[in-house]
């Protein structure tokens, strides 16, 4: 269940160079145009994965986002080691990405409306959830209750983080319990599912939103596609485990293009009178 979706299928970031070939339609696109278009292909509408800081800039009013719990780091409870010790992996990632963990949480403003927001980072072990992600999600829910603000979670994750073993798995229950508290307090919880939202994160706080929005084409599901293909011994139907598939089967409310996310979030906040 914690299979990480292949990063070769869709690159995490837009490749270097003035011109890039779109992963969606193979058209050559001028890089600056892609950036101006929120990293969505102007030709085919392919939504690139984006890092948490870029996402926060895109969604929040300029210079309003205040991060909290920014320094939490994993204590490596298992002293996990595969081909590389987990501690080294974390240190390397920290150097490379400048991030401490796979989620950024804080208070921001969406079209003037104050919100508590969490944004997951695909650059950090595929946005996987260990103890720190679990803690920050729970803390964000508690902050939303304390300040009586809507909670907006932008999910992007391959699932629970293997390197923290059962500590990771139990974060699913912890985040779900925190969302239950928010629900009981009458708080508004909006989830924006982006590519990918799968496994342990999908099966916990991501699928517990009062409202669930998703970006077009985002991979959303529980089990890894290869695992499913192995089980059923046949190829998977086209469009399986996409946002569109989830919409058709009744598991998300709306598919929203990146450029419309701000106004859609603001609209829901207004309808809920929050």
């Amino acid at each position: 269940m914690t299979e990480m979706p292949s990063t070769t299928r869709r690159v995490v970031d837009v490749p270097e160079g003035a011109w890039v070939r779109c992963d969606g339609c193979a058209a050559m696109i001028y890089r600056r145009l892609l950036e101006e278009n929120l990293r969505v292909c102007p030709e085919c509408g392919h939504h690139y994965r984006i890092d948490a800081r870029t996402r926060i800039r895109q969604l929040n009013d300029a210079d309003t986002f205040e991060e909290f719990l920014s320094d939490l780091e994993s204590s490596d409870p298992l002293e996990f080691e595969d081909r590389l010790p987990y501690k080294e992996r974390l240190a390397e990632l920290k150097d490379k990405s400048g991030e401490h963990e796979a989620i950024v949480v804080g208070k921001g403003f969406v079209k003037g409306r104050p919100v508590i927001m969490g944004v997951m980072n695909p650059m950090f072990i595929m946005g996987s959830m260990g103890a720190v992600v679990g803690e920050k999600v729970a803390a964000a829910a508690e902050r939303a209750i304390a300040e009586d603000l809507p909670l907006v979670m932008v999910t992007c994750s391959g699932g629970a983080r293997m390197m923290e073993g059962m500590v990771s798995l139990v974060q699913m229950a912890k985040t779900a319990a925190a969302i239950a508290k928010l629900d009981e307090a009458g708080g508004l919880y909006i989830v924006v599912m982006t590519d990918p939202t799968t496994a342990g994160v999908a099966a916990s706080f991501a699928f517990l939103g009062d409202f669930t929005l998703a970006e077009p084409g985002a991979q959303i599901g529980f089990a890894g596609p290869r695992v499913i293909a192995n089980t059923i011994k046949t190829t998977l139907p086209k469009g399986f485990q996409t946002a569109e598939f989830m919409l058709e089967h009744g598991y998300i409310d709306r598919i929203v293009r990146r450029k419309d996310l701000r106004s859609e979030i603001a609209r829901l906040i207004d309808y809920c009178n929050k």
């Binding site: 780091e73 409870p77 923290e164 974060q171 912890k174």
Partner: peptide
């Protein structure tokens, strides 16, 4: 549930 986890603040 709330207290499951192992982490620290980086200094």
């Amino acid at each position: 549930l709330r207290h499951i986890g192992s982490f620290h603040e980086s200094v």
